[in-house]
Design a protein around this nucleic acid. Structure first.
Lengths: 187, 187
DNA sequence: AAGCGAACTAGTCACCGACAAGATTAGGTA
DNA sequence: TACCTAATCTTGTCGGTGACTAGTTCGCTT
């Protein structure tokens, strides 16, 4: 480091946080570790995020937006199952982001930007359900969307937490596709 | 307090932990708070649990066992949906226990007692699926069980994290029953 | 009743998040 | 160019936390 000012410390801290969480778990992610990792003083990060909750909120917003992008990248003509698989793939490919998304107690309470990002994800999920070809359902669209979300969210969470039975195998994407197909297109 | 020895400090600390988490969130649950709450010195709890991870592991084991009991309390003749609703009800009735169950990074790594408790829960879920009347399924029993678990776990997690859309209403049990019915007995 | 070991206390250490005050510098203005 | 103001970053500090150690109290067995 040659300059007193970092240039884009905010971005650097967010990236360092992801690496730190992936390498050593969310428990090891302290503001001071990130500062050391990036090469700034221990109090520098707080200037960009307010406090630790602010940092985690910013990271969660980024995570929701990336997930939304992945969901919207699924072809509109594809089956709902493909969106479900995309959700699971995002969670397993980006465990650090996923771990930060659903921890309200670590977030800045009532942050409107975060709420907006969560809503965008919800809208993307609704789109996936609405685009799905099967029109004859046992539920209205809201409940179908919640059902699909619950299924893939639960699957990803249980997989990441290592509580799945061995019989399920080692390929999460295949298992997720099989399960989602069985429930949502196996009529 | 009159006696130097507490009598059942281990039990008292576990109960205090549940209260503390329910009242102030898991972030506020520190060993020192629990000690103060129970009226012992700050280092007393560690004697019973080793360290904080040991306490949270013990709490998780207790939680898995209580959940298993709730699942086994469902009548064997009942539909699979009733077991799913029981899972959701447990999570929402005991948010502190539920919050501690699925945080491996806070647990004592590789604890065999915890693994055994998790396995007992899995067996209870398999029983629920096996007892369910509908025999013609799109999946084998393992995948059906994982699907059911994922659905209710995801639903409970999303509900507790307050990211459900408003349209879902205010009665989680009703919504869970509707969704589980739509996917598992709405053939 | 004696003493052994478990239960608990008191003291300490490194580390953390938050805060305050000061140093540095980028970027707009005269 | 010279300034100068606000944003950025550093340094120092404080209370709180988890973990460790040494010492105190007491239940229980023999």
């Amino acid at each position: 480091m040659e300059t007193y000012h970092h240039g884009d410390l905010r971005r650097a801290i967010l990236d360092a946080a992801v690496l730190e969480i992936e390498e050593n778990g969310i428990g090891a992610m302290t503001m001071r570790h990130l500062a050391r990792r990036v090469g700034v003083s221990h109090a520098a990060p707080a200037h960009h995020f307010g406090d630790k909750a602010g940092l985690l909120t910013a990271l969660a917003i980024e995570a929701f937006d990336r997930l939304t992008d992945q969901l919207l990248a699924v072809e509109p003509t594809d089956d709902l199952v493909e969106s479900g698989v995309a959700y699971v793939r995002f969670a397993l490919d980006h465990p650090a982001h996923f771990a930060v998304m659903f921890r309200p107690e670590q977030h800045r309470a009532g942050d409107t930007d975060l709420q907006a990002a969560q809503h965008r994800t919800w809208v993307a999920l609704e789109r996936a359900v609405g685009n799905s070809p099967e029109t004859e359902r046992a539920m209205d669209e809201t409940h179908t969307t919640v059902a699909a979300w619950s299924l893939v969210h639960g699957f990803a969470a249980l997989w990441l937490q290592n509580v799945m039975p061995e019989q399920i195998g080692e390929d999460p994407e295949a298992a997720a596709r099989r399960i989602a197909s069985g429930l949502f297109s196996g009529a």
